[in-house]
Design a protein around this nucleic acid. Sequence first.
DNA 1: GTGCTTATTCTACATTAGTAATCTAAGTTT
DNA 2: AAACTTAGATTACTAATGTAGAATAAGCAC
Lengths: 124, 124
Amino acid sequence: MAIKQISDAELAVMRLLWQESPLTLAQIRGELLKTTAWNHSTIKTLVFRLRDKGVIEPLDKYGAGQYVPLVTEDEYVLAAEKAVLDKFGSAKKLAMAMVRNGHLTDADIEELRDYFRLEGERNG
Amino acid sequence: MAIKQISDAELAVMRLLWQESPLTLAQIRGELLKTTAWNHSTIKTLVFRLRDKGVIEPLDKYGAGQYVPLVTEDEYVLAAEKAVLDKFGSAKKLAMAMVRNGHLTDADIEELRDYFRLEGERNG
DNA sequence: GTGCTTATTCTACATTAGTAATCTAAGTTT
DNA sequence: AAACTTAGATTACTAATGTAGAATAAGCAC
């Protein structure tokens, strides 16, 4: 059931909804305008495209126009990770780039180790 | 100077050139046809677009039509990492997704720790 | 219930990417 | 040198994305 491609601009909308939902178009607009200069129409287009892609949904037709995500951030991240790996020779190369660019810290790596163990246990 | 966007299809060409260069169009085609069914024209388009973007270069005009990369894989990976992080809340989230999807192994994580230390030393 | 505001739908236009054909120029073969 | 093969340039078409306007419908304010 591969999650349809979510574009960069659309992702900004998803981020809001993952943080808090439902949100109305007006609320989404309000939030986005804090960080972007997107036109109302543009924001509407993004929301409607997301709906058309089936990753968000209005709570009820002609209600308050509130939207909720149908895909969790986790699901999206897992799907996106696969797509993204193609761009790097391997996960390791990507991880090293993250370290080299200072985006993955010491603490992150320690957490990763723990996380890896937990995953190992969970999956036997 | 930001490396221009390299598309997925173009990246397949870059991979070959990073492995071995210079390569002629014919060699590139030969390699790509092992893994894709792309038309000759398509492959030429990819090579020419890469050249237009300034990331590869013919060794000499009207020589044997040999191409060399002007950007190393390392440079590309570091630039791409930044672009890619936008898609995930944080490097940590991406790394965890890599673990969860089984793309980042135990050994990789150990290597990352070592790598982190080395980087730390290098940068004081 | 008339007007203002907002949501929904539809349409649009530029750019990039994936895919490819055509035309021309040059090199290779015989 | 005529034919074949290839490289390079130009052009094209489709889908996705970023960006946005226009038309329509519905809800709210007074």
